[in-house]
Computed example of a mutant assay.
Amino acid sequence: MRTLLNSLFVLSEDVYLSCKDDNVYVERGKERVGSVPLRSIEHILCFSYKGASPALMGRCAELGVSLSFYSPWGKYYCSIFGENSRNVLLRREQYRIADDESRALSIAKSFVIGKVFNARWVLERARRDHAMSINMERVTGQSHLLADAIVSVRAQTSIDALRGVEGRAAQDYFYTFDDLILRNKDDFFFESRSRRPPMDRMNALLSFVYVLLAGDCAAALHGVGLDPYVGFLHRDLPGRESLALDLMEELRSVLCDRFALSLVNTGAIKSSDFEERENGGVFLNDKGRRTVLAAWKKRKDEVLTHPFLKEKIPWGLVPYVQALLLARTIRGDLDAYPPFMWK
């Protein structure tokens, strides 16, 4: 269990939550793993399959502490919000900001700055770690373009213009993405980003991992009381979780792209893990999906120091921490949304 941003994260999948004297008890069998006063927290995010007692659920509802349940893999199940919960006020403010371009622009800029900054540092890491294996001139040139894009993001005065800068930065980043593939170049290569369907193995791998991250971001937003379907950068479309797509932008390169490249460059994923369909699309087969999912679980368990909180957390908690920071920004507790900026 971890307490961050007045939120209790219960990460062990075999513990049970109960309530006594206005404390949430975390128990494994007959052993008490820990306890936290309910009045000291705003959210409980529970990833245990054993769940929580009705007494705890009722007391959380009475005190206005949100209690959200997830599978150990991060699939969102449901949340309990009490009568005193600020969830309605939070969502109303989210909708107001989304309808006011001048206010939405500030948050959208933070998403894009985080995305471009992290994409640049993926290239910088490649320059540092694989200088003898990559086209240094090309990677360096694209890194400089991304640095210029960050400056350009700050100068934009409309969301449409911001989307244009973001799109060009993504093209500059992917222009040199093939240089980051260090082995099995006959089977794994990257010419351009292709979707619906992906047309090669690298794009198929990226698309699959992006779906996993999008699911984590949507689950995180649900848990903190935000509406995943109403975003600030991505346009509203029926059935599209626009805010989840907003949130995942800053995490794509550092969490998904580096993960996919690691699978390829270490030989963990092979050409036999893919299949080609009649329409020319390439997709992971059952064996490939199992391989990626197992590696994704291990990746999410790895620990980093969060750049804003300065605390060590698993990578798997990053979307949830960012969702909490976004909720605090919308609520007015933070002056601006702090994007996840990795080095």
Results as ranks from 00 to 15, higher is better:
Val10Lys: 12
Arg120Ile: 05
Glu93Leu: 14
Val116Glu: 04
Arg28Leu: 04
Cys78Asn: 07
Pro72Gly: 10
Val10Asn: 14
Ile113Gly: 01
Ser102Ala: 15
Ser110Asn: 11
Asp100Phe: 13
Val112Cys: 06
Lys115Ala: 09
Phe9Gly: 04
Ala55Arg: 05
Phe9Thr: 08
Gly82Ala: 12
Cys60Glu: 01
Arg127Gln: 09
Asn87Arg: 13
Ser7Gln: 01
Trp73Gly: 08
Gly64Cys: 06
Phe9Gln: 07
Gln94Lys: 00
Val15Ser: 08
Ala52Gln: 04
Leu105Ala: 04
Pro54Glu: 09
Arg91Leu: 07
Ser68Cys: 10
Leu123Pro: 03
Val15His: 02
Ser102Gln: 14
Ala61Ser: 00
Glu124Asn: 12
Trp121Ile: 08
Asp129Gly: 09
Gly34Trp: 04
Pro72Leu: 08
Glu124Phe: 02
Glu42Phe: 00
Phe69Arg: 06
Gly82Leu: 10
Asp99Gly: 14
Met57His: 01
Leu45Gln: 07
Ser35Phe: 14
Val65Cys: 01
Asp99Lys: 15
Glu83Pro: 01
Val33Cys: 11
Ile41Pro: 06
Ile80Thr: 11
Ser66Phe: 02
Asp99Ala: 15
Leu8Glu: 07
Glu83Cys: 03
Val122Trp: 02
Trp121Asn: 12
Val65Gly: 00
Leu123Ser: 04
Gly74Pro: 02
Asn118Gln: 05
Leu17Glu: 04
Val15Gly: 05
Arg120Gly: 11
Glu42Arg: 14
Ser106Cys: 11
Asp14Tyr: 05
Val15Cys: 13
Val33Met: 12
Cys78Pro: 00
Val116Ser: 03
Asp21Tyr: 13
Leu17Asp: 05
Ala98Cys: 05
Arg39Cys: 14
Ile80Asp: 02
Leu123Glu: 06
Leu38Ile: 11
Gly58His: 06
Val122Cys: 12
Ala104Trp: 06
Leu89Ile: 11
Asn118Val: 04
Asp100Ser: 14
Ala108His: 07
Gly58Val: 05
Gly64Phe: 02
Arg39Met: 14
Pro54Asn: 11
Glu62Ile: 07
Gly51Gln: 07
Asn84Lys: 15
Gly114Leu: 15
Arg86Cys: 13
Lys50Asn: 14
Ser106Gly: 13
Cys19Arg: 09
Tyr25Leu: 15
Val24Thr: 13
Ile113Leu: 14
Val122Ala: 08
Arg32Asp: 08
Leu56Cys: 09
Trp73Ala: 12
Leu45Asn: 04
Lys115Gly: 03
Asn23Cys: 13
Leu17Ala: 12
Phe111Met: 06
Arg120Tyr: 08
Asn23Met: 14
Ser79Ile: 02
His43Cys: 03
Arg59Trp: 01
Val24Pro: 03
Cys78Gln: 07
Cys78Ala: 08
Ala119Leu: 03
Ile107Lys: 01
Met57Cys: 09
Cys60Gly: 02
Val26Ser: 05
Gly74His: 01
Ser12Leu: 05
Cys78Phe: 04
Pro54Val: 10
Asn23Trp: 12
Gly29Thr: 06
Arg127Thr: 03
Ala104Thr: 10
Glu31Pro: 04
Ala104Asn: 06
Leu90Met: 09
Val112Tyr: 02
Arg125Pro: 01
Asp129Glu: 15
Leu17Thr: 12
Leu63Glu: 13
Val65Phe: 01
Ser18Thr: 09
His43Met: 08
Val24Trp: 03
Ser12Gln: 14
